[in-house]
Design a protein around this nucleic acid. Structure first.
Lengths: 209, 209
DNA sequence: GGTGTTCTTGACCGGTCGGTCAAGAACACC
DNA sequence: GGTGTTCTTGACCGACCGGTCAAGAACACC
């Protein structure tokens, strides 16, 4: 049966989560030991295992929290905007801003995707977000404003742009999400909205399907 | 002074490199021990340390080889194509095909970028490739065919699309590079070539700078 | 056959890890 | 004060790691 935590216990647990998240993000999951975490918080080993059954469970909980937060930020930003293309734009901008203000969580998400133990949980969480964006892409296609194609593929293309620009210009270069938002939006919308005619004129050697 | 290897020694070394690359890619660098590698190749521990000073050195060598090979594939594909926009397209296509036929190396590159010990070496190697693509983007801008913007940012946007589509549709879904190449190229060129007019018409609520 | 180099084995080492647990402190309720 | 629960400590454990090295095999050359 689930144990009850007091306010004191909940606060201690939160401390472990927050410290661990920062450490996992800056030093890496594998390079961070349980000893690192408890010494950083200033408690004994048993406290850790009182609140978490394992190091892996701790990481998974941090991962889930991050995905929930990112998703909420996107949904709040999009709110009741009716235009599908504008919803995509706002989604891109809010993602960049969120990843900017949560650099540690971005690092965790990036790390997790390549880990056998954590990748599935991450992909499961992202599947819903990806489906949402893909639906906006479909609606844009139905309105004749987004060129015909595979909505899910186009959604992942947008994700790729957002993540790569975040990693290079925010994470590595210390820039701000707002700095690159316009360019990111322009690139992505250009990729979505680009017409066959433009592609044909741009590529004298290639037939565009 | 550098030791000379016989043909027998070179072959053994190659065996260790190839087995380790596959294992690092499928099980992860941290989850792969030196013992895993030597048992997989069928040799004793001392053989490993005869050829490599450490596990880390082995991984770095695999990483460097992968980057050299990817770069060569791109350069061979581009060859003496004069049109900058077409060079970008061919570069995207050859990358997707190469990453398709070298899935293990792709996994390594993805892993390395987030590791403190390996990320710098990877980024150093990519800096040159990024600079090359950025130059094509600049030339396209000078010809008035690519919209004005930050060439390096646009280059990373392309990289983001290529990597994300490779991870999802090739690595996770088992698709082929050739399957997604047209869509990847269309998205990227749309992002590069998209005109202000298109963006303005697509975004009734937003002023495009 | 002798000499020197490359290649090989696998026991061994110190170190570190994730996780366990006996014992007790702090707290809340009666 | 007694009882029960939550919270806490840190010594301890088995397991595993990366790396070392004495000893010898395989080989090439003279």
């Amino acid at each position: 049966m689930e144990r009850r935590l007091t306010a004191r216990g909940r606060e201690r647990r939160r401390q472990l989560l927050d410290f661990a998240a920062e450490r996992f993000a800056t030093r890496g999951y594998h390079s961070t030991s349980v000893t690192d975490i408890i010494e950083g918080v200033g408690v004994g080993k048993g406290v850790f295992y009182w609140y978490f059954s394992s190091k892996e469970e701790l990481f998974l909980e941090i991962l889930r929290e991050a995905m929930v937060e990112l998703r909420q930020a996107q949904q709040e930003a999009i709110a009741d905007e009716p235009d599908p293309v504008h919803r995509i734009e706002v989604g891109i901008r809010s993602s960049l801003v969120w990843l900017d203000t949560h650099r540690n969580l971005f690092a965790l998400l990036e790390f997790a995707v390549g880990e056998e133990r954590f990748g599935p949980a991450l992909r499961h969480g992202q599947k819903i977000a990806v489906a949402d964006v893909a639906r906006q892409v479909e609606m844009g296609m139905e309105q004749g404003r987004i060129r015909h194609g595979n909505p899910e593929l186009l959604t992942h293309a947008i994700l790729g742009v957002t993540n790569q620009l975040t990693r290079v210009f925010i994470h590595e270069r210390g820039g701000r999400g707002s700095d690159i938002a316009d360019d990111a939006v322009a690139f992505c919308l250009g990729g979505l909205l680009g017409q066959d005619k433009i592609l044909s004129s741009a590529l004298p050697h290639t037939t565009v399907r």
